[in-house]
């Protein structure tokens, strides 16, 4: 399997990349880790005329808390995230997901920005971003924009990014006392895309009442999906087993899976129900620690 010919351009700065993209037009594609795009090119499902390599741009690989935000540079690899002390200690949901994403060698190259910007509902990070209510920072010909995650995913492999926009940073509200998250996916074997996955983030106040909650679903809809009805049910409530049971049921009803090699629609709905409940419990446990 060999990709079709293309022109390669290495960008050393975000500005240069955007300029290149603007000049080359829609036949140009950005490549960061390349682990989503290059396989598609090798299978010749994608045949871009130009590849703009953004992986060498300096300064886009970092993980830091800044003000009330956790900020992750878009070129941060999944491995860097996996071994990052801050994420390990304060954002265990990231470890849950990364451990289940592809394999260690792919994670050495694959970036968080690429995982999100690809716009694939089968990728794991979109569900986390939905659950944690991330903002996506992008730079483009018109300058910098900050896109709330709920406005980011538009369709099958389609996002709010214009062709020349570069996703530069992910901003996530900082972990605070009483918050916790968890992610799990059922996969056919390790490293597989999710049969179904669920990310949950909860924030409890001192009396244990749920102030904020986010639930994102992986690979059970064409577009990465937020479980709005489930979140509404929990917000402002003390989360009980009965409520968790109801949210699991809602998740199984509201998700939009299709039957495929990973299983029937009914099976996937059932899996979503189970994982939603389990991740709610796990997130609550972490929030209460």
């Amino acid at each position: 399997m060999i990709p079709a010919n293309f022109n390669y351009h290495k960008a050393t700065s975000v500005k240069e990349a955007i300029a290149l993209s603007s000049e080359l037009g829609e036949e140009a594609k950005y490549m960061s880790g390349g682990h989503s795009l290059l396989p598609m090119m090798k299978l010749r499902f994608a045949t871009p005329e130009h590849i703009i390599d953004i992986s060498k741009i300096e300064g886009l690989s970092y993980i830091k808390e800044d003000g009330d935000m956790l900020k992750i540079g878009a070129l941060t690899t999944q491995t860097e995230m996996e071994h990052n002390t801050l994420l390990k200690e304060s954002y265990p949901i990231m470890g849950d997901a990364i451990w289940l994403t592809a394999d260690p060698s792919v994670r050495n190259v694959g970036t968080i920005g690429g995982n999100i910007a690809h716009g694939d509902a089968a990728n794991d990070q979109p569900a986390l971003m939905l659950a944690m209510r991330a903002n996506i920072v992008a730079e483009g010909a018109d300058g910098t924009k900050t896109i709330p995650i709920d406005e980011f995913f538009h369709g099958f492999y389609m996002t709010a990014l214009e062709p020349s926009d570069i996703l530069t940073e992910i901003q996530i509200p900082k972990a605070k006392k009483g918050s916790g998250g968890a992610y799990h996916k059922v996969e056919r074997k390790v490293g597989d895309y999710a049969t179904a996955g669920v990310a949950v983030h909860v924030e409890l106040d001192d009396s244990g009442v749920c102030q904020q909650v986010g639930i994102g679903l992986t690979n059970v809809s064409a577009v990465p999906m937020r479980l709005e009805r489930g979140e509404e049910l929990l917000r402002g409530q003390e989360i009980t087993d009965e409520l968790i049971e109801q949210v699991g049921q809602i998740a199984s009803e509201d998700c939009e899976p299709e039957s495929d090699l990973r299983g029937s629609e009914a099976y996937k709905r059932s899996v979503v129900n189970t994982i939603t409940k389990r991740m709610l419990n796990k997130a609550l446990e972490r929030a209460r620690q």
């Binding site: 056919r188 074997k189 390790v190 490293g191 597989d192 090699l261």
Partner: peptide, 23 residues
């Protein structure tokens, strides 16, 4: 796996699930 037209549905190691050390 085949579909009704005789197309193989899992002709790569992404979908033909050779066990890893974990399985």
């Amino acid at each position: 796996e085949y579909d009704d037209e005789g197309n193989v549905l899992n002709g790569t190691l992404m979908d033909y699930l050779v066990p890893t050390a974990v399985e």
